[in-house]
Design a protein around this nucleic acid. Structure first.
Lengths: 342, 342
DNA sequence: CGCGTTGACAGGTACGTTTCTGCATGATCA
DNA sequence: TGATCATGCAGAAACGTACCTGTCAACGCG
């Protein structure tokens, strides 16, 4: 390449990178020759020399041997999409790396930093990365004393309390929960928030837990919840498919939604806008999280003293639809309009 | 590292890579010291030296500036998941690279090969990659004369014809289509197959097209289709959300599914198992496609004379549910059982 | 005893950049 | 006119690995 342009290697490098002291004529000439030859500087050599690869790991938790689960489809897809966009805009690319992947794959790719989704308590991958001096930013606050560089999360407790209040305000007397058996932070925080709320308002907890990675188990658990003798008159489901599963279960038991059963589930899916009835959902705003996580990580990589806070809480959004808005009870004569009526 | 173990660089390399002629004692010693020091060979240096990075690009088509669209969520997520697993199992990792991404990002990452999802006619990225001598395998047969190394696809025409026959057998007299305005191969092949079928059986085509990347437009198009004077009594929707949108539209017009309207849509989503009624879906088997694509690509990368065919057609699967199975018509006395009845 | 052979390593080079340093050349200025 | 200085480039040293090519000892064999 240098020979083809009749200049030295240095000049080529400087011309292509806009450095050095070169007259515009030389710069143009080199670039032209490079274009004509289809010359691309070697990414590997550049990485070796500069120590920067422009690659960011995106680590997803695995259940079994699959990288990510049905439960998280919509969330993961949106989050990954936003993260990809944000990274790209700053010249980085994302590498998908399952947390439990073989060690050789991890050490075979030169990463500038890593995004970790929902890291477990003593995640060995995270510790290893941090030990190597790589910045690690997590989606979901780190459990235990995991030494991440920064994290972004929702306020799951507040979100759950909000939903329970919302359901109670809509007339729910006994609110049930569909939760998971896994030990991740999201499930844990949400469940304890539910239990605290029950304690506070003096309601017996009514919940069913199932392995969230198994879509069939979800349908069964939804059914079980509505088959209980102490059947709830409102349910919050922590996972994406719970909404359709609960709707189906309600139909099986002849329960009308929202008349006999109020429903909310946590989901990023748009299908709940056109189910019968449309279901109220809690959005965790994966796009904002994905963007924020990547920004924090790249700030850390580039050593820019980030003016962003290193621990960010993204607000959730409750999208209220028919399933959690009870019509005026049929057994009651419709009361005169009152904006204060409880 | 070499110094710490008291041996030469060569010996370290040989010991860690299982090459050379070293006694087990030396090999163990070197590995032990490496472990103790937390030493990891530099991926960048290895890539530079060997010319192999262990990275595979995963190129997704973009609409607007977002890497992938709502329409393809479930398909993309499943396909990417399978591809990630397959790549990982052979020691490779996936890099997400939007097709329209900035050129500098593409040339900043050392790829061994690339998977392209639904490449457009004269995709400049693909041409560039091929020119560089990199293997490219596409999900979806290449349009035009795109010189991909190999491809994997479904037989979309056959799938559509199958569905139309299925609907006709269920009693449909006028079958409508919900299709897209984009020019990708999937939309094109499916639509022409529909038109051919209509011509063959002598039915006037009844279809609405909308920009598939816009979820709102889908709902509107579904509504439009059922509002037409020549309203179809059966509809096939090419895109994932069409099922729920059509169900909602049918409810608005007081049409019962499947009694007044038969419904099928192409989707990988499990929600259609528990909608009211459950909707018949066509699965394109993204997991099989993702796996096959990665296998072909890695075979090409490693120069293994693949015993796999370079053009693979993955069979689709029609998951028949209530929405496309008409009960015995109410206006007719139920006929004696006859397995030949048309 | 000499010679080939094999085992066990060390040396050195190349991979393709980036970047520091150096060296001309011509212009500017005292 | 000589000293200073900016300009325009070339040389060369890394970066850390893989692998080819030695070298040196020990050993078996005729």
């Amino acid at each position: 390449m240098a020979a083809a342009a009749g200049v030295s290697i240095t000049t080529v490098s400087d011309a292509l990178n806009g450095k050095g002291r070169l007259p515009d004529a030389t710069r143009r000439h080199v670039r032209e020759v490079a274009d004509r030859l289809g010359y691309r500087p070697s990414a590997a050599a550049r990485t070796l020399r500069t120590g920067k690869s422009g690659l960011i790991g995106l680590t997803v938790t695995t259940y079994g041997d699959e990288p990510f689960t049905f439960t998280e489809f919509a969330y993961f897809a949106e989050m990954a999409r936003a993260a990809t966009s944000a990274a790209l805009a700053r010249g980085y690319a994302l590498v998908i790396l399952p947390a439990t992947s073989r060690h050789d794959v991890w050490s075979n790719v030169a990463l500038d930093g890593t995004v970790v989704i929902d890291p477990s308590d003593q995640d060995p991958v995270v510790s290893e990365l941090v030990r190597q001096g790589l910045p690690v930013v997590s989606d979901g606050r780190p459990a235990g004393s995991l030494p991440v560089t920064a994290w972004v999360d929702n306020d799951h407790e507040a979100a759950v309390l909000d939903i329970l209040d919302h359901l109670a305000a809509a007339g729910a007397r006994r609110i049930g929960l569909l939760t998971g058996t896994t030990t991740d932070t999201y499930t844990h925080l949400s469940t304890t928030a539910y239990l605290h709320w029950c304690e506070r308002v003096g309601q017996d907890p009514v919940y069913e837990a199932y392995p969230a990675h198994d879509p069939c188990a979800g349908a069964v658990a939804a059914d079980r919840l509505l088959a209980r003798p102490d059947r709830p008159d409102a349910v919050y489901g922590l996972f994406d498919p719970n909404g359709t599963d609960l709707l189906a279960a309600a139909r099986r038991y002849g329960l009308r939604v929202p008349d006999d059963l109020l429903l909310v589930c946590c989901s990023e899916s748009t299908v709940y806008a056109s189910t019968e009835p449309p279901v109220t959902t809690l959005s965790l705003k994966p796009r904002r999280i994905g963007t924020a996580v990547v920004q924090l990580l790249i700030d850390a990589i580039e050593g820019a003293e980030s003016e962003r806070p290193l621990e960010q809480v993204i607000p959730t959004e409750l999208i209220v639809r028919t399933s959690s808005q009870r019509r005026a009870p049929r057994t009651t004569v419709s009361a005169p309009r009152s904006s204060e009526g409880k």
